[in-house]
Design a protein around this nucleic acid. Structure first.
Length: 205
DNA sequence: ACAAGGATCCTCT
DNA sequence: GAGGATCCTTGTT
């Protein structure tokens, strides 16, 4: 793990570009260290799947804030989701963290999930949120500042997978099909893997 | 004030 | 592969 958090400038770009930079990066929270292996980009404007599609609301206000902050919200009334705000202050884009590998702090994760963990991998955004103990207080937290919860440079994938995003059937067909979900092909438990295909390099769409 | 829907997960079959 | 859990956010009355 690098000593310094990930630079904010690396995230103040288009969500899909930022997504490519986030796969392989580390999430550090105290003794807990997790490597990101699967993400989804949500862009604004022109993305009918993005929470910002209907404009600024109390829930999604953080997405209009500075890049590198956490956009945390409750999904289906019971799962806390971690997103990284991307792009500039006039955009409303974010990258959803869908899967991580636990590198250190397995006991912390096991205690929070309240049950035995499979092989150190957390596939699915609800599991990631549970592992980090997220709740509404984390919304707006600066992930580019040391302490609390922070992003650090990690190990980028050697091989990539890309495919459509999960659970967004309400969007237009164009956006349902957009290959804005990225994953590390060498991580053995990426969720909904059948829908992903190998791509030669980092997709920048 | 109310109704509808949701960036999911788990437990069955 | 299918369905229920569970409750907050949002848009409408």
């Amino acid at each position: 793990m690098a000593a310094e958090p990930l630079g904010r400038e690396a995230l103040a770009v288009d969500a899909l570009v930022a997504a490519g930079r986030l796969v392989g990066a580390h999430l550090v929270q105290g003794e807990l260290v997790m490597r990101i292996v699967e993400v989804e980009a949500y862009r604004w404007p022109d993305d009918t799947a993005c929470h910002a599609r209907a404009g600024r609301t109390a829930r999604n206000a953080t997405m209009w804030g500075p890049a590198g902050h956490a956009y945390v919200y409750l999904c289906y009334g019971l799962h806390w989701m971690l997103n990284v705000v991307t792009d500039g202050p006039d955009a409303a884009s974010a990258v959803l963290i869908r899967g991580v590998e636990v590198l250190a702090g397995h006991d912390v994760v096991a205690a929070r999930r309240g049950r035995r963990l499979a092989p150190g991998v957390l596939a699915g955004p609800g599991k990631v949120g549970a592992a980090l103990g997220l709740d509404a207080r984390w919304d707006g937290h600066d992930l580019c500042a040391p302490g609390g919860l922070a992003l650090h440079p990690g190990r980028p994938p050697l091989r990539w997978l890309a495919g459509p995003r999960v659970g967004i059937d309400y969007a237009t067909p164009e956006h349902v099909a957009a290959p804005w979900r990225l994953a590390d092909a060498d991580s053995d438990q990426v969720s909904h893997r059948r829908a992903l295909v190998a791509v030669p390099g980092v997709p920048t769409g």
